Amino acid sequence: MRHAILAVLASIALSFTAPATAQRDGSPKKPLRVLLIPADGGTEDGTKADFQPLFDAMSQSTGLHFEVHTGQSYAAVIESMCTGLAEIAWFGPMSYIEARERGCAELLAMEERDGSATYFAGLFVAADSGIETVSDLAGRDLALGSPHSASSFAYPLAMIADAGLDPIAEVGAIRLTGSHASSLMALRAGKVDAAGASFISYERAVNQGSLDPSRFRVLGKSRPIPNPPLAMHADLPEDLKAALRTAVSSVHETPGINPESIRGYGGKRVDRYVCDIDEGVLDSAARAVAFIDEDFKAALLQKASLQTD
Rank of each mutant, 00 (worst) to 15 (best):
V218W: 00
P224L: 11
R175C: 08
Y119S: 06
D141H: 09
L187F: 07
P224C: 11
Y273S: 11
D128N: 12
P226K: 11
A49F: 00
A49K: 10
P224Q: 03
G280H: 13
A286Y: 12
L176T: 01
Y265H: 15
D293K: 08
D271T: 15
F296H: 09
P255N: 03
V281A: 11
D56C: 02
T133L: 01
F153L: 01
G103F: 01
R175Y: 15
V77S: 05
S146G: 06
S15W: 13
Q60C: 04
S61N: 09
D45K: 14
T133V: 02
S182K: 13
A117I: 14
P224R: 04
R188T: 09
H65P: 09
G92W: 11
D309E: 12
N258E: 13
I160K: 03
D40Y: 03
S80C: 07
G41I: 03
A247P: 09
I292S: 08
D128R: 07
E279F: 15
P31T: 04
A161Q: 12
E132V: 02
A290V: 07
L144K: 01
A127D: 10
A231G: 09
V134Q: 02
S284T: 15
R188E: 10
I262S: 04
H69C: 06
G256I: 00
A105S: 08
S249Y: 00
A161L: 05
V281E: 11
L35V: 15
A39T: 14
P38N: 07
L301W: 04
E111N: 04
Q72C: 13
L35H: 07
R217P: 00
